[in-house]
């Protein structure tokens, strides 16, 4: 089975999860994206990686955006690539400063440095992550990419 459009692909993913788990899905600028509840992220990621129709076996990028006015100020973005479909998928989750997110560096090995970078630049915590040494800035006391630390 091949998906006719990006929206079909997103609907296929959403069928496998309950309605509360997926906050939103849409296609913007031909790019499919999903907003997922933080607690189900490991489940969603193992599904999109293992499912034979999807096979999102590469993590291309990880970033965060800081919105200081929101109740959950950090929006974390994962970009996946499927070598089978030749398509990209963006997954967003929301997080706060004190609640750690479960690491995905055991599934995608390059998430290790991305998570270190996010911890260094935004102060986002990741559970079960072995190494939180600074990656780029060795002695910076603030979180430079946060919006309120100007």
């Amino acid at each position: 089975m091949s998906f006719k459009s990006e929206l079909d692909m997103l609907q296929y993913i959403c069928l496998n999860f309950s309605k509360q788990d997926i906050l939103k899905y849409a296609v913007e600028y031909k790019q499919p994206f999903l907003y997922v509840v933080r607690s189900v992220l490991p489940k969603v990621i193992s599904f999109i990686k293992e499912d034979s129709e999807l096979q999102f076996n590469m993590l291309l990028d990880m970033t965060a955006i800081h919105y200081p006015d929101r109740s959950e100020p950090f929006q974390i973005r994962y970009l996946f690539y499927s070598s089978k479909l030749k398509k990209r998928l963006t997954i967003y989750i929301f997080s706060t400063e004190d609640v750690p997110i479960q690491t995905i560096s055991n599934v995608y090995l390059n998430a290790d440095w991305y998570e270190r970078e996010l911890h260094e630049m935004f102060g986002i915590l990741f559970d079960y992550h072995s190494d939180f040494r600074a990656l780029f800035l060795s002695d910076c006391e603030t979180y430079p990419l946060r919006k309120d630390k100007l």
């Binding site: 076996n57 590469m58 993590l59 291309l60 690539y81 070598s83 995608y108 090995l109 390059n110």
Partner: peptide
């Protein structure tokens, strides 16, 4: 398989 697991393009 390293290409996939490390996301190398």
């Amino acid at each position: 398989n390293d290409v996939f697991s490390f996301g190398i393009t």
